[in-house]
């Protein structure tokens, strides 16, 4: 029952996290920042706006992105197969990319393009993460991973690699070239407006939930450790976001693939020796 409740509330919790993050970033810059519930105000306002569409495919694909992402979060909460969750997440990203390519807009195309490259950077690491958990627990099932003791120590290098991909997924500096706010006007999301943009906006909140739920897996059955991890990583990601500049997509690929794959590889080889 609690799972159903969590699944239904997932976008709301994501919105709260997003609000908290905006507040926190503002405090780090020594300003007051928007209210905590700002994302929800945005949401109501977007529903109230006149809706525009370019073509039906574009809009429907955007909605499919949101729904499949919600599905991903639901499956993590229900404790389904981790590998399946990762691939379903890939599917949801693909929907977004197809949406971006389905309109004749330069920025949208560039954004989708960069999104594809970002997938190239983080997807192998996610798969390795899944395999790391499999070697440790003998199963891909998230419910099994949650029942076992914390994997943080044994998967520490993979944990570091995972930290690198959080900014990519959450569109944070230095790895936010795929959205690149003013540079390519938000990339994929540029042609969405009104209530249809709302779906993408909420999908962004769900992305927070997805990433932080994956992060919590490192804590296994230790809820206290999980909360601690969440708090520390949340702070760290925002600190890095405030302190770094955006880097180019090719650098992103080199850095994330180079360092991430090496770390993951060392960890997997180490695991099989232990």
């Amino acid at each position: 029952m609690i799972e159903i409740l969590l699944i239904v509330c997932a976008p709301l919790i994501g919105g709260l996290i997003y609000g908290l993050e905006r507040k926190m970033r503002a405090r780090m810059q020594n300003r007051q920042g928007p209210p905590l519930l700002q994302p929800f105000y945005d949401m109501w306002k977007l529903i109230d706006k006149q809706a525009f569409i370019i073509n039906p495919y574009h809009t429907i694909l955007g909605m499919m992105h949101f729904i499949s992402l919600w599905m991903v979060v639901a499956f993590i909460i229900l404790g389904e197969n981790l590998l399946y969750v990762i691939f379903l997440h890939l599917l949801s990203s693909i929907f977004l990319i197809l949406a971006g390519f389905s309109v004749k807009s330069i920025y949208s195309h560039i954004g989708s393009n960069r999104e594809l490259l970002a997938i190239l950077a983080y997807e192998p690491i996610l798969i390795m993460l899944g395999v790391g958990f499999f070697i440790l627990n003998g199963s891909f099932d998230i419910s099994v991973i949650r029942e076992n003791s914390p994997a943080l120590a044994s998967l520490f290098l993979l944990f570091l690699a995972f930290l690198m991909l959080i900014p990519i997924k959450l569109k944070k500096s230095p790895f936010d070239a795929s959205e690149a706010h003013q540079e390519i006007v938000g990339g994929v999301e540029i042609e969405f407006s009104g209530v249809f943009f709302e779906f993408l906006y909420m999908a962004k909140w769900l992305e927070y939930i997805f990433i932080y739920l994956l992060l919590m897996l490192f804590a296994g059955d230790n809820i206290l450790l999980g909360t601690g991890l969440f708090a520390i990583v949340f702070f760290l990601v925002n600190l890095v976001d405030n302190a770094t500049a955006r880097i180019k997509m090719s650098h992103l690929l080199k850095i994330v693939l180079g360092i991430g794959l090496t770390l993951g590889m060392c960890n997997l080889i180490g695991l099989s020796y232990v």
Binding site: R22, A26, Q29, N30, R31, Q32, G33, P34, P35, Q38, Y41, D42, K45, L46, K49, F52, H181, Q182, V185, G186, I190, E191, F192, S193, F197
Partner: peptide, 20 residues
Amino acid sequence: PKYDLERFGVVNTGNPKQSD
């Protein structure tokens, strides 16, 4: 930061389709 328009919820979107 000094004048901080964001405290009113302002976001500089740069995109006409999402702005008020």
